[in-house]
């Protein structure tokens, strides 16, 4: 299905509204719901929206989901999802928390080399922006 078609879908708009509500929801459990339901969706557009929502929250837990987890956020198999997440990170006004999470990911032993490499690239981009 083309991207334009799914964005006019009634259920996609509903999913988009739910993700947006979880973005502004002050309850920290919103991150867990987004991670559990949104980032595991088979639909690229839903994963893209979820990753951007997690970045917008600009919290340690939400940023760790899109930076440090294999197959999610900047490490997503879909180039569109990964690039959208990186763009959202670069658009943040306050990048302190994102830089902290990136440094932790790069320096930590528990993460895959691929994840560390992506974190290093994004950190470089954010330092330049």
């Amino acid at each position: 299905m083309e991207k334009t078609n799914i964005r006019t879908n009634k259920n996609f708009n509903k999913v988009s509204d739910i993700i947006e509500s979880l973005t502004i929801n002050t309850n920290p459990d919103s991150v867990a719901v987004l991670e559990e339901i949104g980032t595991n969706s088979s639909i690229d557009e839903v994963r893209e929206l979820t990753s951007r929502a997690l970045v917008k929250r600009n919290e340690h837990d939400s940023l760790q989901v899109v930076i440090s987890n294999r197959g999610k956020g900047i490490n997503d198999m879909s180039t569109i999802v990964a690039m959208s997440t990186i763009n959202e990170l670069l658009s943040l006004e306050n990048k302190e928390e994102a830089m902290r999470v990136l440094e932790n990911t790069i320096s930590s032993e528990g993460f895959d080399e691929e994840v560390k490499e992506n974190a290093r690239s994004v950190k470089a981009l954010m330092a330049l922006s």
Binding site: I6, N9, N11, F12, K14, V15, D17, I18, I19, S21, L22, I24, N25, N27, D29, S30, A32, V33, E36, I37, G38, S41, S42, I43, V46
Partner: peptide, 22 residues
């Protein structure tokens, strides 16, 4: 929805909407 409980209320709505979309 932003004022709802994420786990108790929004999660089920999210699941239903996603299933309908799929």
């Amino acid at each position: 929805m932003a004022n709802m409980n994420p786990h108790m209320e929004v999660k089920s709505i999210f699941k239903d909407a996603l299933q309908a979309l799929e």
